[in-house]
Design a binder for these strands. Structure first.
Lengths: 253, 253
DNA sequence: TATCAGTATTCCACGATGCGGAATATCAGA
DNA sequence: TCTGATATTCCGCATCGTGGAATACTGATA
């Protein structure tokens, strides 16, 4: 339906900009006359999906944040079967995290089968530089974005292993891209190891398993990396509803 | 624009349900023929705003979560001027939090003017039962929802002052409703006091100031409650873009 | 203060797109 | 296999969305 598509194009243009836009800017971005843009915007503003600033520009409205309150929880539900299989297969706690502003936000978790298990609260936001999922998320960004995010968030030392030097981090991220997975080797918390695989499902995500160092042997890490790569493929297919429109991304494994 | 309104009605119906719905259910909820609902849904599914389960039902799609990544940050920006005035007027750290699942999520913060200041990371999720903002958020919910949320999240003791008994909490929330504000008196962290005022802007929110106990005198608490009530009115007007459609809620101060 | 250029907003005739009812396909349960 | 309920598709029609043009608004400049 043409008019609905156009309204959604507007919502997405405002989101992509991350700032207020004028009618002319939106008209140029979407390729429609100003009058049409304005009529669509009127509906979006009436419904709270956009709001207008005093200088006549428009920005994303609060209704999106209201809808969002439930959206991550629903994604977490959809990811659970994949995480459950991972936790069962590897015996360690499986996590799903997404890039949220300048942090890694955990949106789902399934505990491992051992008595001593990792626990990270769903909704918890972890530093990008010192966690496996964080490094997996960063590996998906251009260097410029990495510099901006880490510059803003800082690179605080959590343990003697934490990478706190930007150049070292950029090198580490090259390694992540080459291997296909990131490792947190007691960088966030002493005695905790984590391996994480990045995937893109409309946003950067990472799926990981984490556990205590004595159990997270190099052999398990290698096995986990393979299982995580398969899980990432499944999660990409499950979590990117809009991806179906962009072509067979699922084929790029 | 009729067709855009109808598509947004669908998005909101799926969100409000928080679970998958059939075409018939959606048709009944919105009051349109099944064929019309189906045509709208096809566009929403194509764009990732809805997704279809194998049993033919539909649920919120992942595109909403993708949009959400920026939405809270934008709300935080819009709230800043009000929080800045509060921090300047009272000298203590001002916070804005929203109800997110079963926690209070901080979406904006402006530090106070003293050398020793409260710091809570934006995006941090705090327990509802043991924080001022959490109790302010809960005070806006029916008892049944309070029971469900606290049952699910638990009521863990953080300090000797923490309320860990449900009946005591329900009584406390009655008090919050009567006074118009909630107080955290070393319930989350010893030596930290917070006063928070609830408001509704499409979702439950709370605006608060917090500081160390020696500075958070009863006199300051009373003064802060008054300032916070005014701030809540401003924030309600600023953050509820969809509210304009529902009538003059701003008049219910 | 007046003017002007750029931009946002409003108006309107027209036809394309969205509409709803009916036909057809699918699904789950007996 | 059959059946009833429901989802999906099809199609004629008219209403709603369209884009161009007219009008209103704004900020910068003289």
């Amino acid at each position: 339906m043409q008019s609905v598509e156009r309204a959604l194009d507007l919502i997405e243009a405002l989101d992509a900009a991350g700032r207020a836009m004028s009618v002319s800017e939106l008209a140029a971005a979407i390729g429609l006359p100003a009058g049409t843009i304005h009529r669509l915007l009127r509906t979006l503003v009436d419904r709270g999906y956009a709001h207008q600033l005093p200088d006549r520009r428009y920005a994303t409205g609060s209704r999106i944040a209201q809808l969002a309150a439930n959206a991550n929880a629903l994604l977490g539900l959809r990811a659970r079967p994949v995480l459950r299989d991972l936790a069962r297969e590897l015996g360690e706690t499986a996590n799903l995290a997404m890039l949220s502003s300048d942090a890694a936000e955990y949106i789902a978790q399934v505990a491992g089968t051992h008595s001593i298990r990792m626990f990270t609260e769903v909704g918890h936001r972890a530093p990008l530089h010192s966690t496996g999922v964080g490094k997996a998320l960063l590996s998906q960004l251009p260097e410029q974005s990495v510099r901006r995010l880490l510059g803003r968030a800082g690179m605080r030392r959590h343990t003697p292993n934490t990478i706190v030097d930007l150049a070292a981090m950029l090198t580490e991220l090259d390694g992540v891209r080459g291997r296909g997975y990131a490792v947190d080797d007691s960088e966030m918390e002493l005695g905790v190891r984590c391996v994480a695989v990045p995937f893109f499902a409309g946003l950067p995500y990472a799926v990981s398993v984490s556990g205590p160092e004595p159990r997270m042997t190099d052999e398990l890490l290698a096995k986990a990396a393979r299982a995580l790569a398969l899980a990432a493929d499944k999660l990409r297919a499950e979590l990117d509803d809009a991806g179906a429109r962009d072509g067979p991304d699922g084929a790029k494994s």
